[in-house]
Nucleic acid binder design. Sequence first.
DNA 1: ACTCTCATTGACAGCGCTGTCAACAGTCAT
DNA 2: ATGACTGTTGACAGCGCTGTCAATGAGAGT
Lengths: 358, 358
Amino acid sequence: MAPAVTINDVAKLAGVSIKTVSRVVNREPNVRQHTRDAVQKAIQSLNYKPSLAARGLAGGRSFLVGLMFDNASDSFLVDLQRGILRICRDHHYGLALCPASRASDRTEDLMLWVTSTQPDGIVLTPPLSDDRDLVDRLLAAGVQFVSVSSAGTGSGPAVYIDEAHAARAMAEHLIASGYRDIGFIKGPAEHACSELRYRGFIEAMQAANLPVNPDWIQVGSFDFESGLDAAKKILGSNKNQGQSRRPQAIFASNDDMAAGVMHAAYQDGLSVPDDLAVAGFDDTPISRQFWPSLSTVRQPIEKIGEHAAGLLMNCIAPGTAMINRTDTSTSSDTSIVLPYELMVRGSTQPAKPQPAKP
Amino acid sequence: MAPAVTINDVAKLAGVSIKTVSRVVNREPNVRQHTRDAVQKAIQSLNYKPSLAARGLAGGRSFLVGLMFDNASDSFLVDLQRGILRICRDHHYGLALCPASRASDRTEDLMLWVTSTQPDGIVLTPPLSDDRDLVDRLLAAGVQFVSVSSAGTGSGPAVYIDEAHAARAMAEHLIASGYRDIGFIKGPAEHACSELRYRGFIEAMQAANLPVNPDWIQVGSFDFESGLDAAKKILGSNKNQGQSRRPQAIFASNDDMAAGVMHAAYQDGLSVPDDLAVAGFDDTPISRQFWPSLSTVRQPIEKIGEHAAGLLMNCIAPGTAMINRTDTSTSSDTSIVLPYELMVRGSTQPAKPQPAKP
DNA sequence: ACTCTCATTGACAGCGCTGTCAACAGTCAT
DNA sequence: ATGACTGTTGACAGCGCTGTCAATGAGAGT
């Protein structure tokens, strides 16, 4: 398991000291070009790769980034990983996973992982990024971390989109499409974005002078089942009393729950979008695959991952090229707000003509 | 970044040598119970966690498992990760990700990752597990690895389900439901399972004496778009010639492609399952969420991950409890075949009565 | 009592690398 | 020519831990 070829072999072959090889490997300055070339050649010919463990022990850095998550959705996690991995690869960093346990003391567990793995930086995903306790412990431990979070705890750098604004835009789209009776399915409280998305919805409704029917506001847990349940409640809320009133549209605060809504609609024999329009949030793959395809808000998750890792690298791996953050992002001191995109698709576009002014 | 508390601190507090602490930490025998307790107490009170890097360097093991993947589907990857992580956690192992690069020499890249990260073991996922070159290099490097693969290269331990059998079972279900004209969408060639699933389908058709229409056999790449395209070809294959014949059912060899088929069907104004039955493979979340929900074959991916990691631990972390493999699995020498499950759902159950014998 | 065994413990030397610091050019202004 | 400086290199001491091996003590057999 020990690497077949060590720094010693390279040094010998190149006719320099191991320290010089170390300098070349670490891209340190003050090495003559000639020497550098010779070492590079030796490295190439021996196919040398420094041992992470040794570098970690000697240098006090592990060249490892940790990704902490708790119960994240599949596509979110994978997309984020993809983005982070791309940047890590560029910086010769590895990525280690740190799932939150169901144990009694989640924070303690996570911190133990930190002290044993000793990652140079951590990417925190919601809802962990909204967890004051954890963030404080991380801060106290002096570990670099970047939050992927809509609002988070306000501590440390973060990468996010303007959730409230995005949700408001979607709600406005619904309103502009002629829907007046609109239901909403909130996310769980431990996610900071839940409140923000809800706020955006409310703002849009108030701005349009539309009433918000409390029966049509439900709370889910961001998964399909909870969306299904919430939709059943909304759609069936007045059945008992014989008032068959139901909303013309339901805005679910993520796609999985929106999928639940559509499923519930079909179960009730409703057609989407003619009987019920449905909107989601996240632009997970499923939103494109559904029939009709789901209107949603696209978060550039992979990009978010890239920027999060990029911020980490800025602190952690100084001197290496940072990722291009001049693109479409608004970058403040340490935090980055990425643009969202409204994806209007079939689930909110009724075939029958809508009156512009109801 | 260095851990605040080292093995030295523990040793001092417990009044023993660091070697004894090391013994306790590593659960080595030949430590008096009294001593062991004292050390444990010291560890607890100091909140000590050994440094992975130091253990790796000194002991020649990294306590890291690598997960190698290339372009795996979201839910597959996440489920597998979940399973692996559970076992890793139990054995105090970490999980590092190793995505295949799009670089010219994929194998070389992966091997460099191996020599620098020096994982104690690797979980290989398809299509990497079907890559002869890579497997040979791994073998040559003497790295422990477990394949998650239907057939693989036949080298080293593997965990898988009987793909051909499963596909055959699904095809038989379709046939038993009264469908005679059945199309099939194969997976890409670099996945060994593609051939196996196809074989299962063919076997069932032949056993039932049903003809296989070559126009109704297409090849996809396991993603939604390719399923959509393949379905369009199958459904529209004879439109030009005015022969409106199309299959009564399409069996896609994974759920993402099956989603594409359903999407294509809806685009053509066909209803599922009345005009076209659709079956998938994998039981990804989407299959439950679709309307109608998708008949598919459930692979216990998380369990597969657990078993793969378990096999790894057997070689890597001897002495630690191995995972319970007596459950429903058939375990040969080193490989494990897990049971699949046929999930019959709405997409293959026509509302209108089907003649038992057409 | 005396040896032989074996369980228990610790001293010590590294693992492969980096940080520190000293050594030694070469360059330039004086 | 002298000193001061900067750029380039290597010797060496660890990083926190484990493997090896030797030392100790306790019990078993004669």
